[in-house]
C-alpha cells in the first residue's frame, strides 16, 4: 500500500466516523439531553449537562480514536521486526496528561459554579408548597405566597396545580419511608426523608401538564407513584385557588 493510498483510506475512515457525529446532535437532541427544560432551574441543569457531555464527547473521540488507531496501526504483521522499541515512559508526556485533565475539570467546575444559583436558590417571594410523600402517593398543601389557596390541600392528591411564571418552593416531607420528588422538565429532584424537611424549587415558564414519578425506591408501589404538575395561566390559577375548600 502506497503512502497516498494509505492517506486516502485514513481520510475516508475519519470522514466515516466524524460525519455521523456532526449530524447526530440534531437527531439525538432529545435522546442525548435532559427533557425540554421548562424553567430556569431545569435550564441551568441542561446547560451544565451540555457543557459536560460536550467536553466528554470530545475527550472520548480523541482518546477512543487514539486507542482504536493504535490498535489498528500497531497490530503485529508479518515482516515487521518482532521486538518494538522498549519505551519505559516519558515524564513530559505523563505530566502533560495529568495536568491537562486537571485544567479541563477546573473549567467544568467553574462553569458549574457560575450556573449554580439558578439550580439551588429559590427566590424569596416563591410560593411555598408543602409536599407529603407516602407509600404510594404525593399530596400537597399550599403555604406562603399562594393567595387564596394558602393552607388548603387539594383533594386530587396526585396533581399539583400552580400558576405559570411563578417561582414555587417545595418543602418535602415523608411519612413512612424515603421517596424522591422528580419532574424532569421542571427542576432538580429532591429526596423525601422521614423526620426531615428537604427543599427544591422550580418555575414553569409556560402552561402545560408535566409528568414525573417517585425516584427513590420505596416498596412494591414505587413504579406507580406518579407525579403530575399542572401549570395554568394566572387567571385560571385565581379561579382554581378560589374554588379550593
Amino acid at each position: 500500500m502506497t503512502v497516498a493510498h494509505r492517506l486516502r483510506t485514513l481520510v475516508a475512515a475519519v470522514t466515516a466516523v466524524v460525519a455521523p457525529l456532526m449530524l447526530a446532535p440534531a437527531a439525538l437532541a432529545d435522546t442525548a439531553t435532559p427533557e425540554n427544560p421548562a424553567g430556569p432551574a431545569s435550564h441551568a441543569i441542561d446547560d451544565i449537562y451540555r457543557a459536560v457531555i460536550g467536553t466528554t464527547m470530545v475527550i472520548f473521540i480523541l482518546v477512543g480514536g487514539w486507542l482504536v488507531y493504535s490498535a489498528i496501526r500497531f497490530r503485529a504483521r508479518p515482516g515487521r521486526p518482532i521486538d518494538p522499541p522498549q519505551m519505559h515512559g516519558s515524564s513530559r508526556l505523563e505530566w502533560g496528561w495529568t495536568i491537562v485533565p486537571v485544567l479541563i475539570l477546573v473549567g467544568l467546575a467553574g462553569y458549574t459554579f457560575h450556573k449554580l444559583p439558578d439550580v439551588k436558590n429559590a427566590p424569596s417571594d416563591s410560593m411555598v408548597v408543602s409536599v407529603l410523600a407516602q407509600q404510594f402517593q404525593f399530596s400537597y398543601t399550599y403555604g406562603g405566597n399562594s393567595g387564596a389557596a394558602q393552607g388548603k390541600t387539594p383533594s386530587t392528591a396526585t396533581t399539583l396545580v400552580v400558576p405559570e411564571n411563578t417561582p414555587v418552593k417545595l418543602e418535602v416531607h415523608a411519612k413512612d419511608v424515603a421517596h424522591d420528588w422528580w419532574v424532569p422538565a421542571l427542576g432538580p429532584k429532591v429526596d423525601a426523608i422521614p423526620g426531615q424537611t428537604t427543599t427544591t424549587w422550580f418555575r414553569a415558564d409556560h402552561t402545560g401538564t408535566f409528568h414525573g414519578q417517585c425516584s427513590e425506591f420505596c416498596g412494591v408501589g414505587h413504579a406507580t407513584m406518579a407525579i403530575t404538575v399542572k401549570v395554568v395561566s394566572a387567571s385560571d390559577w385565581r379561579t382554581y385557588a378560589g374554588g379550593l375548600k
Partner: peptide, 12 residues
C-alpha cells in the same frame, strides 16, 4: 493514557 501509551509503537 499509559495503557494506550504501552500499545503505541508496539507489535500488538
Amino acid at each position: 493514557f499509559n495503557w494506550v501509551g504501552t500499545m503505541w509503537m508496539g507489535q500488538i
